[in-house]
């Protein structure tokens, strides 16, 4: 996850390769999550056995964990801001806080999945179950990958110089993190708040 600009040290557009690549990747991710969300929307009401969405969703709980993820975006952007100013200790602090908030969110998701499972919604129970766990699970994996990257970054910063421009590395992971957050903004509304 390091960076240099083009070989000739100038690029045709004056922007960094890595950042352009990251945004290109995020554009592609829109179609990945779009497909998963559409699959859920198509199947959310199809329950031949087991609980219906409205019977098991715990809106207050999910609202809190959504809020936690939203706030992790704030701490992430503060980390990026500190990194650009060259404030290493502040960067590390905010990165750690972001990772902790992310971990709280994932922990909440694990708790939620367990609760749903105990209430009779398994992966194979119904189309709702399969598509719900697939969509939110994919998102959870993305968050987890983000946490690993954040923690690795903190660890590497403590040990040694990171290859590439430090601030840009933080910024790239930030872009990824915010993207995961905006996907949850959509999931929270479409999956949890709009009843079937």
């Amino acid at each position: 996850m390091t960076d240099t600009t083009a070989h000739g040290h100038t690029s045709s557009t004056g922007i960094s390769n890595v950042k352009l690549g990251m945004w290109t990747f995020l554009g592609s991710e829109c179609l990945l999550f779009g497909g998963l969300i559409s699959t859920y929307m198509l199947y959310r009401g199809r329950v031949t056995g087991g609980p219906r969405p409205s019977q098991i969703f715990d809106i207050p709980f999910t609202s809190v964990s959504s809020f936690v993820l939203l706030m992790s975006s704030l701490t992430m952007v503060l980390a990026v801001s500190a990194a650009h100013k060259g404030e290493d200790r502040k960067t590390n602090l905010w990165l750690t806080v972001t990772a902790l908030l992310g971990a709280t969110f994932v922990g909440g998701q694990v708790y939620e999945f367990t609760a749903f499972y105990n209430e009779g919604l398994g992966f194979s129970t119904s189309l709702f179950g399969s598509s719900f766990y697939t969509l939110t699970g994919f998102h959870g994996v993305h968050v987890t990958v983000g946490i690993i990257m954040l923690m690795s970054l903190v660890g590497i910063f403590k040990r040694s110089e990171v290859p590439g421009k430090k601030a840009e590395v933080v910024e790239m992971i930030g872009l990824y993190w915010h993207f995961v957050d905006i996907v949850w903004i959509i999931i929270f509304t479409l999956v949890y708040l709009i009843p079937v």
């Binding site: 699959t39 199809r46 031949t48 992966f123 194979s124 119904s126 189309l127 179950g129 598509s131 697939t134």
Partner: peptide
């Protein structure tokens, strides 16, 4: 993993 996405019996 036993998902039902294309299982017509489950309404797919």
């Amino acid at each position: 993993f036993g998902a039902r996405f294309f299982d017509v019996a489950a309404g797919a």
